[in-house]
Deep mutational scan, measured.
Amino acid sequence: DSWHDTVDGIELELHGADEELLKLAKELLKRGVSEEEVRRIIEELLK
């Protein structure tokens, strides 16, 4: 799946992010949310 590559990229960027955020990112990508949107959501949550 192409979203796996996206998640791997996000995981590299979010090496400090907790497991729950990564699960959320994967779930959003699986549901068709764009990579940009996922990054934006996670950045908001990390604030």
Rank of each mutant, 00 (worst) to 15 (best):
D1M: 08
D1C: 01
D1S: 14
D1T: 10
D1L: 11
D1G: 13
S2H: 10
S2P: 13
S2R: 07
S2F: 12
S2T: 09
S2Y: 11
S2I: 12
S2C: 05
W3M: 11
W3T: 11
W3K: 07
W3Q: 12
W3N: 09
W3H: 11
W3F: 12
W3S: 14
H4E: 13
H4D: 12
H4Q: 14
H4M: 11
H4W: 11
H4C: 07
H4Y: 09
H4K: 13
H4P: 13
D5C: 05
D5W: 05
D5F: 05
D5R: 00
D5T: 12
D5H: 08
D5M: 05
T6P: 10
T6I: 15
T6H: 14
T6S: 12
T6M: 13
T6G: 10
T6K: 13
T6Q: 13
T6V: 14
V7R: 04
V7W: 15
V7G: 10
V7Q: 10
V7E: 10
V7C: 04
V7F: 15
V7A: 11
D8W: 02
D8R: 02
D8I: 14
D8T: 14
D8E: 13
G9D: 12
G9H: 12
G9K: 14
G9V: 11
I10L: 15
I10G: 07
I10S: 09
I10K: 07
I10T: 05
I10N: 04
E11A: 12
E11T: 12
E11H: 12
E11M: 15
E11D: 14
E11Q: 12
L12H: 09
L12M: 12
L12C: 04
L12Y: 06
L12I: 13
L12V: 08
L12R: 03
E13F: 03
E13Y: 01
E13D: 11
E13R: 01
E13P: 06
E13Q: 09
E13H: 04
L14A: 05
L14W: 10
L14N: 04
L14K: 03
L14C: 03
L14Q: 04
H15R: 05
H15E: 13
H15F: 07
H15L: 15
H15K: 09
H15C: 11
H15A: 13
H15Y: 03
H15V: 14
G16I: 14
G16D: 06
G16K: 05
G16P: 06
G16H: 08
G16C: 02
A17V: 15
A17I: 15
A17Y: 14
A17W: 15
A17N: 07
D18W: 12
D18T: 15
D18F: 10
D18E: 05
D18Y: 11
E19Y: 08
E19F: 08
E19S: 07
E19K: 10
E19V: 10
E19H: 12
E19M: 10
E20N: 12
E20P: 07
E20K: 10
E20C: 03
E20Y: 15
E20Q: 10
E20M: 09
E20G: 08
L21E: 01
L21S: 02
L21D: 01
L21P: 01
L21Y: 06
L21M: 11
L21C: 03
L22K: 08
L22Q: 09
L22R: 11
L22P: 01
L22V: 09
L22I: 13
L22A: 06
L22F: 06
K23L: 05
K23F: 05
K23A: 13
K23S: 06
K23V: 07
K23G: 03
K23I: 07
L24H: 04
L24G: 00
A25D: 00
A25E: 03
A25P: 00
A25R: 03
A25H: 02
A25G: 03
K26Y: 15
K26S: 07
K26A: 10
K26I: 15
K26E: 14
K26D: 08
E27T: 04
E27W: 06
E27H: 04
E27F: 04
E27G: 02
E27Q: 05
L28P: 00
L28A: 01
L28C: 01
L28V: 00
L28M: 07
L28Y: 02
L28K: 00
L29W: 02
L29H: 02
K30R: 11
K30N: 15
K30C: 06
R31L: 15
R31E: 13
R31S: 15
R31N: 15
R31Q: 15
R31V: 11
G32K: 00
G32C: 02
G32V: 01
G32S: 00
G32A: 01
G32M: 01
G32Q: 01
G32N: 01
V33P: 01
V33T: 05
V33M: 09
V33C: 07
S34I: 02
S34M: 02
S34W: 02
S34N: 07
S34Y: 02
S34H: 07
S34D: 07
S34P: 13
S34E: 07
E35R: 15
E35W: 15
E35I: 15
E35F: 13
E35C: 12
E35D: 04
E35H: 15
E36K: 08
E36L: 09
E36W: 06
E36G: 07
E37D: 09
E37H: 03
E37G: 03
E37M: 05
E37P: 00
E37L: 06
E37F: 02
V38C: 02
V38I: 06
V38W: 01
V38E: 00
V38F: 01
R39I: 08
R39S: 05
R39G: 03
R39E: 03
R40W: 06
R40T: 06
R40M: 09
R40P: 00
R40G: 05
R40Q: 09
I41P: 00
I41S: 01
I41L: 05
I41G: 00
I41M: 04
I41V: 03
I42C: 02
I42G: 00
I42P: 00
I42H: 00
I42E: 00
I42Y: 01
E43S: 09
E43A: 10
E43M: 14
E43L: 14
E43C: 03
E43T: 12
E43G: 11
E43K: 09
E43R: 11
E44A: 10
E44Q: 07
E44R: 04
E44G: 07
L45D: 00
L45G: 02
L45H: 05
L45C: 04
L45F: 08
L45S: 03
L46E: 02
L46N: 03
L46M: 12
L46C: 02
L46S: 04
L46V: 06
L46R: 08
K47N: 13
K47C: 03
K47M: 14
K47S: 10
K47P: 04
K47V: 10
K47R: 11
